[in-house]
Design a protein around this nucleic acid. Structure first.
Length: 759
DNA sequence: AGCACGCCGACT
DNA sequence: GTCGGCGTGCTC
């Protein structure tokens, strides 16, 4: 795919926005109805002559299904229908999906085993009201006139279910989806040629002059605020006929750029990548990512194109949007897009689709936001798993990096994934010619702490004297230390003092963790709770010892060793966060920088199990080093581990070189691909479906595991099967079959994750 | 025989 | 997703 130049993309975008795309004039089309199920394939419809001009791939249309109006998206032409087709009812003007984005949506649906309607929904304006009808040919006696907008509920109430269906079939009412209307705000507008005599009304005169200076029109609230006047003054001006008060739609929340032109060292690489196109991975220290993204955005807006930048969380989206506003040249606009935007969300969506905003910063909810002039798709912190929705929750369970790469390919835009520690599934992927992911020159960290690795072999203590001494010296000198412990509670496991048995959950057999200031035992799997002094089921003893280091225990021991209060920061709790020493999870503690960062139990991550353990630990140590101004101290019983050595010396390359062969040997991405399929339902149904329907039809080179039971959380029983193949498309196809199989089997549900982080 | 309920498949 | 058809099984 050749990258569209700015001008070409812009011309195409205008054609698309104004609805004069190369009108296909299809006689028959395939339509994906927006019913979120795997069970319903795309259906074919005839395009009545009056709609031919407005229907092309990506059009949002209204089509009948069993006599009822449904929304759907045109996928393309149906060249040879093998049956008598129904007519499309109508086309929803101005709500279509750009055809290149439609292409990317189809890829996303297929490769993540997500139903196409679900994917398309994310590429359409949020909150489309699909329950609104317009009365086109009223019948005598109806309470509505031609042109009235009526809700489905009101029509059903008045006409009855059959009456409504009949009215739809006869074309008397027409489903007309709309985007939620914009809230209106009051504007004050100078009346043309108004020359009011305001000599004896100084306050009115001052307000009137101010309004004229500001271009003659302003939202009333902003005008009164700026001019320091009261409502009464404005009302009086309106009464005199000097200004007109009118309600206008509230503008979308676009930030105008402030004209920062400070150019750093990222400019040359960024504009070269934007000029060449393709997909890139760029290793950049965390603190420099915003500046690198600003350089990319400057290059993109300089071409007259739009950039879509995806960040893992709402907070980082907002931060980055503010940064870009300051860092881009004057005359451009920036907007944030995420699920917390409420009514503004549809307005930003529309501004992006129409090309009225140059840079959009969003969470994964923005991954399929249509752009009129797509120039770049860019990912902040590519390694972050928040870029993927949890399966079964809102959003599409595919990593935003994969969506961005598919979009870049389909829409002819550059894709740049930034992270100091990119995922190996991206970084270690074979660089195959022009379609592969290339690397931009990596930037080493400019500051790196002194790293001390403390060997804990032969010690039963939680904290070494080295750690405590380092901490004490630092605090005495007025410094601050952050202590990273990625386990909540007091201890991650406990064992019986008499017989040594590890206490396990009676429901799901996981080790019980000690919580609530060491008072109760909690199962992290199902939430089961019991008192810590309950007798041991093995020997009856009520005495136990904590095992496994968790935040509260480190906080307590450090506090007593130092003889001073220690703070705590986790996602759910913040206490004494200004203390000189603060313990907490990596996500919270490493948000800020510290004179020293201490990692008392890196082994929990290093040997925590799962194929991703090495990658997670490398990232943990690397991020800890980035947050440490002076010292990084790590306690471990495996001080010679290659992950520690590589991370401590800012050597991602050698980590990747050592880790990639392990992934290859174990058959993990990017060298092989997997999908987890969790099937829930009666045991016989699930096993029957796997053995007699899923296993027999697997493609070449796809393996499927036997179902293994999944610890239930109250719902129906579940089993997990694993699909694996060298070929990514083969796994995706098999996962898609599993999804359709489950959709067509009553009583069985499937949750599917293609290339999950962990199996 | 007549009816209620639930499963299955069609719907373009 | 939604509806209707039809089978099973129960009641008058």
């Amino acid at each position: 795919m050749v990258r569209a130049t700015g001008q070409r993309a812009a011309a195409a975008a205008r054609g698309y926005v104004e609805g004069r795309y190369a009108n296909a004039g299809y006689a028959n089309v395939r339509v994906c109805l927006l019913i979120p199920t795997h069970a319903l394939p795309p259906l074919s419809y005839r395009v009545p002559a009056r709609l031919r001009r407005g229907v092309s791939a990506g059009s949002l249309v209204v089509a009948p299904l069993s006599g009822r109006s449904r929304l759907g998206v045109v996928l393309g032409e149906e060249p040879e229908p093998d049956r008598e087709l129904e007519d499309l009812y109508s086309v929803a003007e101005g709500l279509s999906v750009p055809p290149e984005l439609l292409e990317a949506c189809r890829w996303v649906g297929e490769s993540a085993a997500v139903s196409l309607p679900t994917v398309l929904r994310a590429a359409l304006p949020p909150g489309i009201d699909a329950g609104r009808f317009v009365v086109t040919r009223p019948v005598e006696g109806w309470p509505w006139a031609k042109g009235d907008a009526v809700s489905r509920a009101a029509l059903k109430r008045a006409l009855g279910p059959d009456g409504l269906k009949e009215a739809e079939e006869e074309g008397r009412v027409l489903l007309s989806p709309t985007i939620p209307p914009r809230k209106t705000v009051e504007w004050a507008v100078v009346r043309g040629a108004a020359e009011p005599d305001l000599r004896r009304a100084p306050r009115q005169r001052q307000l009137f002059e101010h309004l004229k200076e500001r271009g003659g029109a302003l939202p009333a609230a902003a005008l009164l605020e700026e001019a320091g006047a009261g409502r009464a003054v404005l009302r009086e001006l309106a009464r005199r006929g000097a200004v007109r008060l009118a309600r206008r739609p509230e503008p979308p929340p676009l930030l105008s750029t402030a004209g920062g032109s400070e150019k750093g060292s990222f400019e040359a690489d960024a504009s070269r990548a934007v000029g060449r196109g393709g997909a890139f991975v760029w290793r950049v220290p965390t603190k420099d990512e915003p500046e690198a993204i600003a350089a990319i955005a400057r290059a993109v807006v300089g071409e007259g194109d739009q950039a879509l930048i995806l960040a893992p969380e709402k907070a980082s989206v907002e931060r980055l949007a503010r940064h870009l506003r300051r860092a881009l040249p004057l005359g451009h606009t920036v907007a944030a897009y995420h699920s917390g935007l409420g009514r503004d969300r549809a307005a930003v969506f529309e501004a992006a689709r129409r090309g009225e905003v140059d840079v959009i910063v969003g969470t994964r909810a923005a991954a399929l936001l249509p752009l009129a002039r797509p120039g770049a798709f860019c990912l902040l912190d590519e390694h972050d798993e928040s870029h993927r929705a949890e399966p079964g929750y809102e959003g599409i369970p595919i990593h935003a990096r994969d969506v961005a790469i598919a979009r870049g390919r389909a829409e002819g835009a550059v894709v740049i994934c930034l992270s100091p520690t990119p995922s190996l599934r991206l970084f270690a992927a074979p660089r195959r010619g022009a379609s592969g992911v290339r690397e931009l020159p990596a930037r080493p960290a400019t500051e790196w702490p002194a790293v001390r690795i403390v060997d804990m072999r032969g010690s039963g203590a939680v904290l070494s004297s080295t750690l405590v001494d380092t901490c004490r010296r630092l605090v005495d000198g007025g410094g601050r230390a952050g202590v990273v412990v990625d386990r909540l509670g007091y201890a991650s496991a406990v064992s019986c003092n008499r017989c040594g048995a590890v206490r396990r959950c009676p429901e799901c057999d996981l080790p019980l963790a000690l919580h609530d200031r060491a008072r109760s035992l909690v199962c992290s799997g199902c939430g089961h709770r019991e008192a810590r002094d309950a007798p041991c089921p093995e020997c009856g003893s009520d005495r136990l010892s904590p095992a496994g280091i968790a935040v509260e225990r480190v906080r307590e021991e450090l506090s007593s060793a130092l003889g001073r209060p220690v703070g705590l920061v986790t996602a759910g709790r913040r206490e004494l966060e200004d203390a000189a020493v603060v313990v907490g999870t990596a996500r919270c503690v490493l948000q800020e920088t510290w004179d020293a960062v201490l990692v008392p139990d890196v082994d929990a991550a290093l040997h925590g199990g799962g194929i991703g353990a090495a990658e997670r630990s490398f990232r943990l140590v690397y991020r800890a080093a980035e947050s440490a101004r002076g010292v990084l101290l790590i306690q471990t019983r495996t001080p010679e581990h290659y992950v520690l050595g590589a991370a401590a010396s800012d050597d991602y390359e050698s980590f990747a070189a050592a880790e990639a062969p392990r992934l290859r040997a174990a058959g993990y991405p990017p060298f092989a691909h997997l999908a987890t399929v969790v099937l829930s339902g009666p045991r016989r149904t699930v096993f029957g479906a796997v053995e007699s329907r899923l296993r027999p039809g697997l493609g070449e080179g796809v393996e499927v595991s036997d179902p293994v039971p999944v610890a239930g959380t109250g719902g129906p029983a579940s089993w997990k099967v694993l699909l694996r193949s060298r070929d990514r498309r083969a796994v995706a196809r098999a996962a898609g079959r599993a999804a359709r199989l489950a959709a067509g089997t009553r009583g069985m549900e499937a949750r599917i994750l293609v290339d999950p982080e962990e199996v």
